[in-house]
Simulated scan of single mutants.
Amino acid sequence: MSRNPYESPEAARTYDEENAGRQDFDFYLELARELSPDGPGLSVLDIGAGTGALGVELAAAGHGVTGVDPALAMLDIARHRPGGEQVTWIHGYADAAPEGAADLAIMTGHVAQYFLTDDSWRELLAHVHRALRPGGRLAFESRNPGARAWERWIPEFTRGTYPHPAGGTFTSWIEMLDVQGDPAAGIIETHRGVTERAGTKSYSAPETLAFRPLATLETSLEQAGFDLERRFGDWSRGAVTAQSPEHILVSRRL
């Protein structure tokens, strides 16, 4: 699995500022509404819950939420954010989730791309399958390698200035370190974040992501005991194309 740069308390503190206004939140909130037509009340497992922003929104909508994350610095923010007491937070990975308890498992923030090897990806899907009730859904997104997003992960396109939680501002950007493979078979990409505040520059731990082709994702879900129900190419639920930015998949546990 890729090293998690958000184990750093400073990176965790600034995560929400750098990732404000995420379209994926609306998608997953709407999906939860669709899956509970008689009113809220799903049992939702949020894998890679991060700072808990989405988990708290799902809980506020009336769902029972369990958030799992391996980074204590992120979970500390989740536990102390307004509404955080409505969510059950677990420090760990998907294997720490209760068995057969969830109606819906979600992996947001491109968590699926942190599992770099086929074995680690299969192991994750097996843990999610165990955590879901029969008929429960798994929903996640993974960037489409055909869209070649990593080519835009350079300072020219990623530099931004944001308010810092402690006051003042900070500027951050991404530096590309390595790209291996090809879009047709899959890409392994490594980058790092750079932050500048008050004249001091700091670097995050290198972050490595796997870009899996759609066919690979679909086959792995089938082999893990899931039936793929829906696929989308963007957060507005557009069709999957060769250049669509995302592979957003909703599957049912058999």
Rank of each mutant, 00 (worst) to 15 (best):
E57V: 07
A101K: 10
P82L: 06
A60W: 02
E123P: 04
L75F: 09
F115V: 13
E99V: 15
A53F: 03
A101D: 11
F115P: 06
L29C: 12
P70K: 05
L125E: 10
D118K: 00
A112K: 00
I77G: 04
H110Y: 02
V68M: 09
L125T: 04
G67D: 10
H91Y: 00
H129N: 14
L54D: 02
S43I: 00
H127T: 10
P70M: 09
L29Q: 14
A96H: 14
A94F: 05
A102F: 13
S43H: 14
H127R: 11
G41I: 01
L54Q: 08
L72Q: 13
Y114Q: 14
A59K: 03
D103I: 12
P70G: 12
V128E: 08
G48Q: 11
R79Q: 15
H80D: 15
E99H: 12
E85R: 08
V128W: 05
D38Q: 14
L29N: 03
V111G: 00
A112G: 02
T66K: 03
H91M: 07
V44W: 03
L75C: 06
I47S: 00
A32Q: 03
G67I: 12
I106W: 07
L42A: 09
L58Y: 07
V128G: 03
L31M: 08
D119S: 14
L35P: 05
E85V: 03
S36I: 00
V65I: 07
M107D: 04
H110E: 04
L29G: 01
D26T: 14
L35Q: 15
V111A: 02
A105C: 15
I77M: 01
H127C: 13
G48H: 11
T108P: 02
D76G: 12
D76M: 02
D24Q: 03
L116D: 07
G39H: 09
I106C: 06
G109L: 04
E57L: 15
E34A: 10
Q113S: 15
M107I: 06
G52E: 08
L31D: 01
A73R: 11
A53L: 13
P37F: 07
R33K: 14
